[in-house]
Amino acid sequence: DVEEQIRRLEEVLKKNQPVTWNGTTYTDPNEIKKVIEELRKSM
């Protein structure tokens, strides 16, 4: 579920933690925001 994935990513973003997405680890909050944007567009 895309909305659930977005929620999880936003939680990680709030905690300022790195997130691994599709085999890539993002540590930059701006990169994580881009991933969230892409997910929103795909909905």
Rank of each mutant, 00 (worst) to 15 (best):
D1A: 12
D1V: 10
D1T: 13
D1M: 12
D1H: 11
V2P: 07
V2K: 06
V2D: 03
V2A: 08
V2F: 10
E3G: 10
E3T: 08
E3F: 13
E3P: 08
E4P: 02
E4F: 12
E4Y: 12
E4G: 08
E4V: 07
E4D: 11
Q5P: 02
Q5Y: 10
Q5A: 13
Q5V: 15
Q5H: 09
I6S: 01
I6K: 01
R7N: 07
R7K: 09
R7E: 05
R7A: 10
R7F: 06
R7M: 09
R7H: 07
R8K: 13
R8Y: 15
R8P: 01
R8W: 15
R8S: 09
R8M: 15
R8L: 14
L9T: 01
L9C: 02
L9H: 00
L9R: 00
L9M: 10
L9I: 07
L9Y: 02
L9S: 00
L9V: 03
L9A: 02
E10N: 05
E10S: 06
E10F: 06
E10Y: 08
E10Q: 07
E10W: 08
E10K: 05
E10A: 04
E10M: 12
E11F: 04
E11K: 05
E11D: 11
E11W: 04
E11I: 07
V12N: 15
V12Y: 15
V12R: 14
V12P: 02
V12W: 11
V12S: 15
V12H: 15
L13M: 12
L13R: 03
L13T: 03
L13E: 02
L13Y: 08
L13Q: 03
K14E: 13
K14A: 14
K14C: 10
K14M: 14
K14I: 12
K14N: 11
K15N: 14
K15Q: 13
K15L: 15
K15R: 12
K15E: 10
N16K: 12
N16S: 08
N16Y: 04
N16V: 04
N16A: 09
N16W: 14
N16L: 05
N16C: 09
N16D: 06
N16T: 04
N16G: 15
N16P: 05
Q17D: 07
Q17N: 05
Q17E: 15
Q17V: 11
Q17C: 09
Q17M: 15
Q17K: 08
Q17W: 13
Q17R: 07
P18E: 12
P18W: 05
P18C: 11
P18H: 09
P18N: 09
P18L: 05
P18T: 13
P18A: 11
V19G: 06
V19W: 15
V19I: 14
V19T: 04
V19H: 04
V19D: 03
V19Y: 12
T20L: 13
T20P: 02
T20F: 15
T20H: 14
T20D: 14
W21S: 02
W21E: 02
W21M: 10
W21D: 01
W21P: 02
N22W: 09
N22T: 02
N22C: 12
N22A: 07
N22S: 03
N22Q: 13
N22D: 09
G23K: 01
G23L: 01
G23T: 01
G23V: 00
T24R: 10
T24W: 06
T24G: 03
T24E: 11
T25Q: 05
T25I: 12
T25E: 09
T25L: 14
T25P: 02
T25D: 04
Y26M: 11
Y26K: 00
Y26W: 04
Y26S: 01
Y26R: 00
T27R: 04
T27Q: 05
T27L: 05
T27C: 03
T27P: 02
T27D: 09
D28H: 05
D28P: 01
D28I: 03
D28A: 04
D28N: 09
D28L: 04
D28R: 03
D28Y: 03
D28Q: 06
D28S: 07
P29K: 06
P29D: 03
P29G: 05
P29S: 07
P29H: 07
P29R: 05
N30T: 11
N30R: 13
N30D: 14
N30H: 12
N30A: 14
N30L: 13
N30W: 13
E31D: 13
E31A: 09
E31H: 04
E31Q: 08
I32N: 00
I32M: 03
I32G: 01
I32K: 00
I32H: 00
K33V: 09
K33F: 09
K33R: 14
K33N: 05
K33P: 01
K33M: 14
K34I: 07
K34R: 11
K34H: 08
K34F: 09
K34W: 10
K34G: 06
V35P: 00
V35Q: 03
V35C: 04
V35G: 00
V35W: 04
V35T: 02
V35N: 01
V35I: 15
I36H: 00
I36T: 01
I36V: 06
I36S: 00
I36K: 00
I36Q: 01
I36M: 04
E37L: 10
E37P: 00
E37H: 07
E37R: 06
E37Y: 06
E37F: 08
E38K: 08
E38L: 14
E38H: 11
E38C: 14
E38T: 11
E38W: 15
E38Q: 13
L39H: 01
L39A: 02
L39D: 00
L39V: 03
L39R: 01
L39N: 00
L39I: 06
L39M: 06
R40Y: 12
R40D: 01
R40L: 07
R40S: 04
R40W: 07
K41D: 06
K41Q: 13
K41F: 10
K41H: 12
K41L: 14
K41N: 12
S42M: 15
S42H: 11
S42E: 08
S42L: 15
S42D: 05
S42F: 14
M43R: 05
M43G: 05
M43S: 05
M43P: 04
M43Y: 08
M43D: 03
M43Q: 11
